[in-house]
Amino acid sequence: MNAVPPRAFVVTTAMAVALLVMAAFTLTTGDFPVPLADVITAIVGDAPPAAEFVVGTLRLPRLLVAVLAGAGLGAAGAVMQSLSRNPLGSPDMIGFTTGAATGGIAAILLTAGGTLGTSLGAAAGGLCTALLILLLVGRRGLGGYRLVLVGVGISTVLMAVNGYLLTRAALGDAQRAVAWQVGNLSGRDWTHVTTVAVTLAVLLPLIMLFHRRMSMLELGDDTATALGVGVLATRIVPILASIGLIAAGIAMAGPIPFVALAAPHLARRLTRHPGPNVLPAAVTGALLTVVSDFAAQHALSVQLPVGIVTSVFGGVYLVSLLIVQRRSRRA
């Protein structure tokens, strides 16, 4: 592993530093400003009770869930885009997110939804959708636009199902379902943090084990086989691991849209390095989520869920991507 390219290293470090700064900023800012010194003592565990409560119970768990879920989404998006050889192969595009939302909403409405039920429902919904899409697309279609188009079809059907479920619910339940469906980080506690942290700690190293092999697979199946890479295992293990990462993220933070799509794009542009760029994408994902959540909390006078910010910016990003692409093709 001595082949870490210097530019990628610098970019990742710079992102990590930016993430730290942003984190410190988030922890100090709010209705109850806490000076940086108090934040640090609160984390270490010896601060005035008020600062202790605001930082330790309210702000820190929320921040950590944002960092960890964002990192998971970024890494998973990088894996999916690399393995499908498709810059759009992200969970948002292929209906995974909508399927998870269907599962989560169903759980909220059927089981009067505790957090655990919602999480399990979301994970199950997402997994079933992913399997269905893989079956429909077939092995050959993964790289092409077929993946995206089948995903669009599936999402539309599932959105109708979601809409139908909402008309069937009591208003209070519908409200909770919508609030969750948007992707929301408010009210996270330490159980959320541990769940995402454990998943990330297990699955991210697993993905990193396959990092080199995934880079070789990008050269094509035949070349990779000739280089001694087990093609099937290199596909299946990282894909399963990234589905796990996304499922955990969605379960704990709701389906935050577009982070898994945009983070790997941005990371690749910054590092200018071929290959999956999993770590840079993970750090970028964390940074994007934290910044979006900060904007969601402080940009307007009302607090918004983070998903609304990423959704709006993601939509705008995708439109501008299409326009830029068109320009460059014409030229």
């Binding site: 595009m93 959704s311 939509g315 705008v316 990003y317 439109v319 299409l322």
Partner: peptide
Amino acid sequence: AGIAVQFA
């Protein structure tokens, strides 16, 4: 493009 508009 449709999806992007939809998301936003």
